[in-house]
Structure formats: C-alpha cells, structure tokens
Nucleic acid binder design. Structure first.
Lengths: 121, 121, 121, 121
DNA sequence: GTGGTCTAGACCACA
DNA sequence: GTGGTCTAGACCACG
C-alpha cells in the first residue's frame, strides 16, 4: 500500500518530514545508508523525482549527504542531528504555545500541567 | 470583513471555538452578555442558524446560558470555565506530545526545553 | 400517517423523547441500528433537519452514536442507558410529587396508595 | 397582581382546581366559610361569573355548599373531602404511571425508587 | 429588539 | 445509499 499523504502540503515535503523523523528518532542512525531513491519511490508509489526533491530538502539541512556512487547516507555529524532535532522542537513548541496563547494559557501554566499530568503514563 | 474559516472543520465549530477562546481568555467575563446571534451572523458573514449552532455547543458545555429575550450570557459559574480550560489544555497537550513522539521526543525532554528555552521572551 | 405532536414543546424534542423512550424500553436494543434520518423524516412528515436535531440531543446524552456512512446506532454501553432511565425516573417523579404536594399529599401517602391500589391490574 | 392562568384550560376550571387544592390541604377546613364571589373575582381579576362557575364545579362534587344568605362553605362531611382527595390521587397517579409506562417503567419499579430515593428530604 | 424553531433545498464526503 | 453542513427565509413568543 502507498504511504498516506494529505492534499494540503506538497508530497515531497511530507516525505522529507517522514524521513527526517526517522533519522531523528534513530531509525536510520548516524552514518547509515538510506534506502535508494527508486526503492522509496516504489514503496511510496510516487515519482522518483519527488523522492529526489525530498532528499534535496534533507541535504540542504545537512542531515543527509550523497556519496555519488554509493548512495545517500545520514550525516556522520551527530551535532547536526541534535541541532535539527532542537530546532524542530523549538518550532513545534512555539506553534503550540501560540495556539495555547489564544486561550490565555501561558508557558508557565503548561509546564505546571506537564509536571503534574499523567499524559505519558 | 468576514472572519476567516478553514474548509476542513465545520464553520459552526470554528465559531464555537473562537467564542470559547474568548470566554476562557476572559474577553467575555463571568456573567457577561455575549453579542446577539444576529450581530455575530453579520460580522462573521454567515447565516444566523450557523451562529445558533455554535452557541448550542457552548450551551451543551455549560459555558453559555441563555435568558430568553435578554440574550446569551457567559455562565456565572467560574468553576465550569476553569474545568473546560483544563480539559482543553489536556486535549491539546496530548495531541502535541503525540506529534513530538513521532520524532522521538518525550514529555520529559519537552519540559526541560520549556524550562530552559527563551520562547516566551 | 404523520406522528402526533403537541404545539407546546418543540417537535425535535418530542421526537427525541419518543426515540429515547423506545431506546429505554428496549424497542431499539443496545448497539442496534436506528432508522435513517431520511426514513424518520418521511414517517414523521417533518424536515430531515428536524430529525437531525432530535438525534443531536440523543448524541449529546451519549444514548446514540453515529458511524458516519453506516447510520446511527444505540450506544453499546448499557450503563449509559440505565443511568438515563434512572435520571428520567427521578425527574418525572419529582415533578409529580410537587404536583401532589399542592394538594397536601406527601410521598409517604403516595407509597401507601401505590402499594394498596389496583391501578396496575 | 392577578393570579396566573394558562391559556389551555378554561380559567374557571383552573380556579376550581386551585380552590379544591386549598380545601383538600385544609387551608379552608371542614365547615369553613369561603371568600365571597366578589372578593375572589377582585383578587383573581376575573369576571364574577367565572368565579361562580368555578364554585359550581365544587358544588357538583359536594365539596362546597351554599347557604343562601350566609355565603359558601366547605362541606362539613370530612368523608367527602377524603374521597375526593383519594379520587384525585388515583387519577393523577394513573396518568403518571401511564407516562412512566411509555418508558418501560412499572409501578413496582416506581415504588422501589420512591422508598429508596431522597426526593422528599 | 431578543432567542428559538421549522422548512426547503442545496452541497459535501464516504463507500 | 448514509450522515453532516450551510443557506435563505419564514414564523413564533417574549417584552
């Protein structure tokens, strides 16, 4: 079965996000070889160019490097991954705090709630 | 100018959410009179029935009470408002934590980030 | 033939009551599929929107759940049904006792009468 | 202020009911003199004929007797009052049980509820 | 003026 | 076929 994409965001960005998540989570570790463009194109049921564009995004961020003949690899620089993970957390959190803001909930209140809540287990 | 609505969620729910936010934030305080159905219909540029439905939601939640010919009012029960604010925070936070989870970020990491971060200032 | 409605209470509430009665009595059992909105609209000879509103009431009470394209179903939670039946009995009884009160008849007298009376047989 | 009447039932019957309630409750005891027609007409803000008709109802039931020059009196026969009180209780209860019946609630269930409930205090 | 109800009819998503 | 949403416009009760 093809992957699931929403109709709002460009598909290549959705694929890039998905791959980024897998790298950040460590599904593909530091220096690991990533699946080939054709492989991904088949499993996602999209045009290989779309996969290529997704990789472009990741390469621009420094998360992925291409070694011409051998394929594409996760960067060996752990620091880069950590930075991107941090930036992602920052961006998502800011959006979230803004959405809470429109209900008059502040960051401090959120922290108190998180520390007291049982959401995670 | 008409309000902005997205095409995904029903308009009446978006209006209900907006009003709920204003009540929770205190834009409309405990016991305050809310704008009339027709008034809101004009400013939102929607059918009065749509506003009516939005209010139904808020009345079901106990956030709004209506005094037949006098208009609609925010509940005088502060406790109700606080409860709903809490439930809302819980729901939004759970969704957020789930989205972070797909990047391998845990609640604890989020708390650490929030306490150290500069997002708010 | 159309159903009978009084002119005092809103039709949609009368329909909701009628359906609630049927669910509580077990005419529609736990998890049973209810007639479709359009079907009921035809037999009651009212607008489908009116039926829809009636169902809204029942859904708010948790008595009915809707499975988008499959139809509407009685909740599978027997407990919910029992609770609502109890609440209904309590409400009706209180009103009744109040009306007796204005004739100086107490609850105790009513109990005695019920136990001795032949109303049921 | 005038008394409150609903628009459904004839006013004279509503007045008769009100007076009957007062007699049954003992507001006007066995053999007591009742207010005059004119007096009642003034306080109820209705035509004296309407009061007269109300009294006719009570006289037909044997609850009130007219002593031509002295006015109208509650019957001295306590038994009559008790009978009417009983008949009233029977009628109201039957209606009530029928309404419960449409929700599948039996007389026995009502008795159990009444004995266990706290409705009265 | 306020809210509430109802109808008629349209359009959408889902499957 | 199912439910859901929205509009347009009418009518009512209340004060």
């Amino acid at each position: 079965m093809a992957w699931q994409f929403n109709a709002i965001e460009p598909i290549y960005l959705q694929i890039a996000d998905r791959l980024m998540g897998q790298i950040i989570r460590g599904v593909y570790g530091c220096g690991d070889r990533l699946p080939s463009v054709r492989e991904l194109a088949l499993s996602a049921e999209v045009n290989p160019n779309t996969i290529q564009r997704a990789f472009m995004e990741l390469q621009n961020k420094g998360l992925v490097v291409t070694e011409s003949t051998a394929g594409k690899f996760v960067t060996k620089n752990e620091e880069t991954i950590r930075e991107i993970k941090g930036a992602l957390l920052a961006a998502k959190t800011e959006t979230f705090l803004n959405s809470l803001n429109s209900y008059g909930i502040t960051k401090e209140q959120l922290i108190i709630y998180l520390k007291g809540g049982k959401t995670d287990g």
